[in-house]
Design a protein around this nucleic acid. Structure first.
Lengths: 237, 237
DNA sequence: TAGTGGTCTAGACCACGGG
DNA sequence: CCGTGGTCTAGACCACTAT
């Protein structure tokens, strides 16, 4: 028999991940859940606490509990939205959309992504400029089947990473970090010499087994690093 | 007023991190804590659950609760002990200690490490060979003040990372990942060309504000990558 | 002031697993 | 078997904060 608190946890999690309850949505009070599930408030509390720990929910006394704003990638180091990082570090950040087109996924690429061939995708190339220097080139694929709103999004007001975070809660992500030599195209965009070492981050994101996006971000090795401080499974905040 | 469960949590955590309770040590029963702190067993349970989530404690019915074996670095991607990674991937792994000497920390380096000048350290250089190919050079400093047993350790049976994990529970770690060009010395050791892109990981580890170790690991860009799959704040295991 | 979450109790029953 | 943790109750009081 599954514990009640786990059932409550999973039910709420599912509603959030499915998008039924959007960020900012007010979640019923503990007392209501206790009535609905026929359990004590403490049992509900245990489920809610776990949801807060997972970052899906924020709670305020008197006001209630709400679906959290889409999360940053707190489990990994702050490999996240470049603009936010740069702003936090006190740098000026801007970006340019270099290319933007809608395509269907070829069979080879679909296999690489463990996705379905023929799926419609939005393919974007984007340059990030921090403190006046080209700092990252972002090559991204967004599955239009999963994120239909992306079809008409220009990304004029928010870069793709940030925009996606505001649209789609994620449930799973896969990361790869490598060091590579800059190829000709990348070198030209980043204004570095061909063959220079670059830090290459690949991230693939799913929402409940449906792929959301695949992105490859390439940084000049001398202009970027990933850093983070970690405790063994951060808790209390 | 600090909640009781937090006090219990911190007290136990402190004992473990200080080394008073070594890995495998049996922790008193919930009932005993409830008596000691004059609280109910549920309050103790909340503290213990949090300790399990942090990976400091493992619990078994009937047998009791025990200090967990030193953790791998689960918060970051499995940037961990190279041998373990290689073995998991099905490769043969061996290592060679290239240099090993005891020194005192110069003032410049001490400042870099945010440590005390004049502290005695063990400096090690170590080459990791996976599947017959040089895959990483590890340059490490171990604070002998924090880990006195390292003074006479030859690292013949376990590489430094693994040995350290078995000796010292860690409470905080800082990571930096960069892409760099191979310098002459590194290129020679890794049998690559000078200037080739390399993935560079720096990790500094503390135990309760006392620095344990500083390590810089350099991988050839074409022979290594960091990878991981993450859920938002892994919980249930 | 009143509504919400945060913590806590003093019990209880059950599930698991070693002897 | 029986000791241990896992879950749960039906209340309670307190802390915070929007109004």
């Amino acid at each position: 028999m599954e514990p009640i608190y786990l059932r409550i946890f999973k039910d709420i999690e599912a509603k959030i991940l499915a998008g039924d309850w959007r960020p900012g949505h007010r979640i019923p009070r503990e007392h209501d859940f206790a009535d609905d599930y026929g359990c004590s408030r403490m049992t509900v509390s245990k489920a809610m606490t776990a949801l807060v720990e997972r970052g899906l929910v924020v709670r305020k006394r008197k006001t209630g509990s709400f679906v959290a704003s889409p999360q940053i990638d707190r489990t990994v180091m702050d490999i996240q939205d470049i603009g936010t990082e740069a702003t936090l570090a006190g740098y000026e950040h801007r970006y340019e959309i270099l290319t933007r087109k809608i395509e269907t996924l070829g069979s080879v690429e679909a296999a690489q992504l463990d996705s379905t061939s023929g799926a419609e995708v939005l393919r974007i190339q984007c340059l990030h400029i921090v403190d006046g220097k080209p700092t990252a080139v972002e090559r991204r694929i967004i599955l239009l089947d999963t994120v239909p709103l992306a079809r008409n999004e220009s990304f004029a007001t928010a870069p793709p990473a940030k925009w996606l975070l505001s649209q789609v809660p994620w449930s799973r992500a896969k990361h790869v970090i490598r060091a590579v030599s800059a190829d000709a195209a990348t070198a030209r965009i980043l204004e570095i010499d061909r063959g220079e070492p670059c830090l290459n981050l690949i991230r693939q994101t799913w929402q409940n087994d449906r792929m959301v996006t695949y992105v490859e971000i390439t940084h000049p090795g001398d202009r970027f690093q990933f850093a983070g401080i970690f405790h063994p499974a951060e808790k209390t905040a």
